[in-house]
Simulated assay, not measured.
Amino acid sequence: MNEPSEDPQVHSLDARSLRGLAHPLRMRLLTALRHGGPATASQLAQKLGESSGATSYHLRQLAAYGFVEDAPEHGKGRERWWQAVHTGVRFDSALLRDGNPEVRGSADLFLHEIANHHTRELATWLGTRDAWSEAWNRSSDMSDWTLSLTPERALDLIHKMHDLVESFRVPAPDDGAPDVEQVRVHTHVLPLPTD
């Protein structure tokens, strides 16, 4: 779906690493470490409503595939602390056409889990928006458009949206303000069947 990444903080998925990541709990664990910072298996189990045995096992699997690593500056007790290795992953749509059906199945599961994650984030926002300030309520967005585009123009739109979002990663003068929060941006560009 996206072009190969040149950013060392973004891991480009291949067939091997995709098989290691394409599991609902592993994807949730990795997201929790990316957004919340280093944590132990027990802390993640409590946060995600899972058993610490399950989180510990899947963290070790994520480590074997290079997605997480020890966070030694946090490991002062008996529990092992984990941290994400990369800030994100890049998915290549060629994985959906791989000759190995196991790879195609992993690619399909991965994309469905991303869609489920977006839905959970949106549902969480809708369920908790009253707890946020009026400024944040005014500054949220849930929009959609229907456009008539060729595949080439759709790809151009995707690149322009990504470039715009990336431009906001540059620290702004107000990044130290007390009301700065992490903000999630979801984009979906997909063709619709017509009757």
Rank of each mutant, 00 (worst) to 15 (best):
162 H>I: 14
48 L>K: 05
66 G>D: 06
189 V>W: 05
44 L>E: 10
195 D>V: 01
32 A>G: 06
138 R>I: 01
65 Y>G: 11
132 W>Q: 14
158 I>Y: 02
74 H>V: 02
183 V>R: 13
186 H>M: 04
64 A>E: 11
69 E>L: 10
187 T>P: 01
47 K>N: 04
160 K>M: 09
7 D>I: 01
45 A>K: 09
37 G>H: 12
84 A>M: 13
181 E>A: 09
181 E>G: 07
26 R>F: 04
112 H>V: 02
86 H>S: 13
169 R>K: 13
141 D>W: 01
113 E>H: 11
107 A>S: 13
3 E>G: 08
82 W>V: 10
1 M>P: 00
155 L>A: 04
84 A>V: 12
121 E>P: 10
65 Y>P: 05
75 G>E: 15
87 T>L: 15
191 P>W: 03
138 R>D: 09
154 A>V: 01
92 D>T: 08
137 N>A: 09
195 D>F: 02
85 V>Y: 09
30 L>I: 13
26 R>I: 06
192 L>N: 10
165 V>S: 01
48 L>G: 03
29 L>A: 09
63 A>S: 14
158 I>Q: 03
17 S>H: 08
28 R>S: 13
160 K>C: 07
36 G>Q: 09
168 F>Q: 01
11 H>Y: 13
95 L>V: 10
84 A>Y: 13
53 G>F: 08
82 W>F: 14
136 W>C: 05
47 K>V: 00
103 V>G: 09
11 H>T: 08
16 R>V: 15
95 L>H: 10
140 S>K: 04
88 G>Q: 10
188 H>S: 12
91 F>D: 08
51 S>G: 11
41 A>V: 06
